[in-house]
Nucleic acid binder design. Structure first.
Lengths: 226, 226
DNA sequence: TTAATTTGTAACAAAATTGTAACATTTAAA
DNA sequence: TTTAAATGTTACAATTTTGTTACAAATTAA
């Protein structure tokens, strides 16, 4: 993941949280606490996407947005609007003014990330890559392929989902219940021991010869990547 | 303002000035005058941030920084590097080596304070990671791992829970009944002497050679960390 | 359709963990 | 000092947890 994201938001704690997490995800981030500063900084920063708060101390998000659209170099800058609860009735107005998406506070970072990806994929596919990497392992979510050390590994559907799940939080230990919930369809019921068998299958595929073990067993707790 | 800050800097007058002012601002501060001492003290002190001089009599700031990053319990310790004038061209190198920010001497205390705040603000959301620390011991609840002095210690499930329990209130003495209630599943019944055996096992794992005893026996009362 | 792949479970093997008893050592009190 | 209580230590059998394999049912591809 790469690309530049600019944030105009007057709540420092939100900026902090979002900025930190976006940076962890590989984005370059800059921000302003009010509209006028934001408009100036924006030109310097030349972002690929703008996160814009609805309510700002000086200008409203809408005004900023209209302002931006007047500027030729920002005609196509994607904007995601952040609105506080209770401003919902204005959503349509927001979308009319050239906003690409909106998000109601409070929101989870995952939600935000999903929107950002979706918008960026439309406007600038280069900035989004859905590859999960860990150690010498690489999982391509789009093409549904897995490589270790550059060499492709063939996985069955369940093994793929299992590995994908672990890769979203490598090193973290997941219980069998957590794994079941996240990797198996919501309605289906399988024995928790079934996981052990799939872990075994995943291990067999992933542990190419002369490669170190990738899946750690944590007795009485579950499994994790390592 | 609170938190612990460690300083490695060979100029006593700078240490004095900075330490005094930081303490006035509510920080707990400790320091060393050279790299080797610093690395040792660091482990004992478990700071939330490190101020690191670039030029030291023994190791360079860069070397120390690399050294620190190798240690699992310090992977995310924020570091602010202090460089003397004329070393500016090395700034990028400094940032590459895992430094979070730098400051060129001479600097005003206000400047330093602003950087510290900024860095801590960024790293603090990270500090919510479920790590329990005590002395040179670190327990990662997410990854289910324990480190002493940076070195991993393998524990069985019960030993892990036992240590986790003690770490939530280190130094506090717990009776065998309290330990039983909190560490063992609610329905199960075991002899209170069983705890002694598990304490013994925990001690054996945790007391790496040449390390001081971590678990204290309080006769007729129970056990605690120390 | 047939063939191939994938999936869940049972059954057994292997390994790790656990509780307890028995004995040793330390500590505090008499 | 002697004695009793508390704790340390060790060994071991029972139990729990996980690894592994085989196989039939279900699903998908050919």
């Amino acid at each position: 993941m790469n690309g530049k994201i600019f944030i105009i938001e007057d709540e420092p704690s939100i900026i902090q949280l979002v900025q930190h997490n976006l940076e962890k995800n590989g984005f370059l981030v800059s921000s302003s606490l009010n509209g006028n500063d934001g408009l100036k900084e924006l030109k310097k920063f030349q972002p690929d996407l703008l996160l814009l708060d609805w309510m700002l101390p000086d200008l409203s998000g809408i005004e900023i947005c209209k302002n931006i659209r007047k500027d030729n170099s920002f005609k196509n800058l994607p904007v995601i609007m952040l609105t506080a609860k209770g401003e919902e009735e204005d959503k349509i107005k927001g979308l009319d003014s050239g906003v690409d998406d909106y998000l109601t506070k409070p929101f989870s970072f995952n939600e935000l990330m999903a929107r950002i990806k979706a918008v960026l994929r439309r406007s600038n596919p280069n900035t989004v890559s859905d590859n999960l990497k860990f150690d010498d392992l690489m999982l391509d979510r789009i093409e549904k392929r897995v490589f270790r050390d550059g060499q492709e590994i063939k996985l069955g559907p369940t093994e793929f989902r299992l590995l994908e799940f672990f890769l979203t939080n490598p090193k973290r230990v997941y219980s069998r219940d957590q794994i079941l919930e996240s990797v198996w369809p919501n309605n289906i019921n399988v024995e928790s021991r079934t996981i052990d068998v799939h872990i075994r299958r995943l291990r067999q595929s992933v542990n190419l010869k002369n490669k170190k073990e990738l899946i750690r067993t944590v007795r009485s707790s579950g499994y994790s990547l390592i």
